[in-house]
Design a protein around this nucleic acid. Structure first.
Lengths: 335, 335
DNA sequence: TTGAAAGCGGTACCAC
DNA sequence: GTGGTACCGCTTTCAA
């Protein structure tokens, strides 16, 4: 009763030999237990248990074209926004008996394509979260294998996105009510679809609310990125600032604190994502919450639906967003 | 000049056909370009480029026994301690032309073994960070394939660990200097080797410093875990508390704030890991910093050394730790 | 220097 | 119901 992973490497032949049957029967017992005679099944199952046999997925994939693996690619695991999505995706995949291969691109579009290429034959499909590569590239990947993009829209490519419009509308309304008339937007990566989207929505929403939107240019969507543009934000004399994501917003808070700038007294700060830290910092961050628990699950379900041929065309799922008001926003300061 | 991933699936045969050579020659051109005649090489390389051929690593692994993939398993990617390690490991692996397959076990020892099993034939070795499984299980995995454990010691298994003793000594000295005589320890998972280790070291170090160590029992190594034991900590009437890791320490801070308990006025808090958030919260957290940038790199180097047969026996690397004093620790309150 | 053939671990198909 | 055989994509002898 050796339950180790396989003493060196147990193959289907070892099982067949021990059970006194052919490899075909072992295979069949595993795939369709009802198609073999009970006593055969039992002998095989005993042998499998005894040897600790576990089929080689890579070899199986070679012939079936299915590996039982999903590729999950994110720009930056250090951004606490992604772990929630990742964990939900992994959990859902596990339920459906898929393994998840995860990779981090470090926000680098080139690394992204490299990883996709390296993984491509070892997974059945990809879940690309906030992919930074071009539409062209994305579509070319989709030509070859099932892909679901998260937080991005590309024609003909299945996608799970957030209804950014709703959250932004709430946030802008909130700021307008507090008397803000000049709001800065700290943009994220130029290559980020959601950054463009948020910027676009923000422009129309603020102008509708009679708010002037000031642009402070792009920065890395990280703590340091936020910290780096903080001075620029102050220079705009905006009374409130919205950041592309919470990490940037936290970076702003850090720098503001260092400068003795009071939040929200001197300036209000709004983030995006509602990462777990948002409520821990001082002051707790007002931010736009996304249904991130659901996105991982929805993405995996869509991907596997695609694999199973249950879905055709390019399905779309849109998940809700909502403003969560905390202490980092307050009445506009009077100049 | 189709640079897509492979129009459906480019195999070595397609390349061979287009180049007018045999599959063997294609293979040889890729593996040892000098072993083929220049004109053959050129024809093959042109065909490879034209078709966007990329060898199927899984198929290759089947015969060579090497997949070019490394498995990286961590208990919880949502704990900001791990992303730094992961990113360093990925970067180093990429340099050495390996891909990393990452998985999160959700702190579940059973999931850990399941993942290892699912991945085992698809990777050349494992980097197991803070593995929660038993020594037995770990050794049985190591029987089958190269493994490097991080933040854990198991006889005969290669390991990269932190010199916890040094950091703890500094922390205890720091607290002693501040007049603390009664310190609580909030333990992490029962299955965590480093928790046991830290607890052990803490016991001897505090007793040597004339400090009474109070145990508050185990909790999940997360924000919520820390929050959950905060009341218990206060009940011990300790003037300082050390947590198994920063996430737990942040959980304590959160609850203390909710209760109106002043840190460090009423109680000092010390964490472990020095995650990026530690300095962002209020008050910034005093914590024991680990050389985490180095650990991912060292782990990968050791693992690949093992794979290449450059290392034998069970190598050990021990990385430094150091107390980082911030505002969450102060003089002991007088009772 | 090159190509044919065998085989890695599995699965699918087809006789029996 | 079962076993033989071919083959997935690739590498590695081994002869030519």
């Amino acid at each position: 009763m050796d339950s180790r992973l396989g003493g060196v490497a147990v193959t289907i032949k070892d099982v067949a030999r021990l059970a006194g049957v052919s490899a075909s029967s072992v295979c069949r017992t595993l795939a369709a237990p009802d198609d073999v005679r009970p006593d055969t099944r039992e002998r095989v199952q005993r042998a499998v248990a005894e040897l600790g046999y576990y089929p080689n997925r890579a070899a199986r994939g070679l012939i079936t074209g299915r590996t039982g693996n999903l590729g999950l690619i994110v720009p930056d695991i250090a951004n606490p926004f992604f772990p929630d999505i990742i964990k939900a995706a992994e959990a859902r995949a596990r339920e459906l008996d898929y393994a998840v291969f995860l990779a981090d691109t470090d926000e680098d579009p080139a690394a992204e394509m490299g990883l996709i290429r390296a993984m491509s034959k070892q997974v059945d499909g990809f879940l690309l979260v906030s992919a930074r590569c071009s539409d062209e590239e994305l579509r070319s990947v989709y030509d070859d294998m099932p892909v679901v993009v998260v937080q991005r829209c590309v024609r003909h490519v299945p996608a799970v996105t957030f209804d950014d419009h709703d959250g932004i509308r709430q946030a802008v309304g909130h700021l307008a009510t507090l008397g803000h008339r000049r709001v800065a937007y700290v943009a994220g990566p130029r290559t980020s679809w959601s950054n463009k989207e948020r910027q676009r929505i923000l422009r129309s929403t603020t102008s509708a609310a009679g708010i002037e939107l000031v642009d402070t240019g792009h920065a890395a969507p990280t703590l340091d990125g936020g910290t780096a543009v903080a001075d620029l934000v102050l220079a705009t004399r905006a009374t409130a600032v919205m950041a592309f994501n919470d990490m940037m917003a936290l970076g702003l808070l850090r720098r503001f604190r260092a400068l003795g700038v009071d939040v929200p007294g001197d300036i209000s700060v709004v983030g995006f994502d509602d990462i777990p830290l948002a409520e821990l910092v001082d002051p707790p961050l007002t931010t736009i919450s996304l249904a991130k628990q659901r996105v991982g699950r929805a993405g995996v379900d869509m991907l596997i639906g695609l694999l199973d041929g249950r879905l055709d065309r390019a399905p779309r799922t849109i998940l809700p967003t909502q403003l969560t008001v905390r202490a980092s926003t307050g009445p506009a300061r009077r100049d």
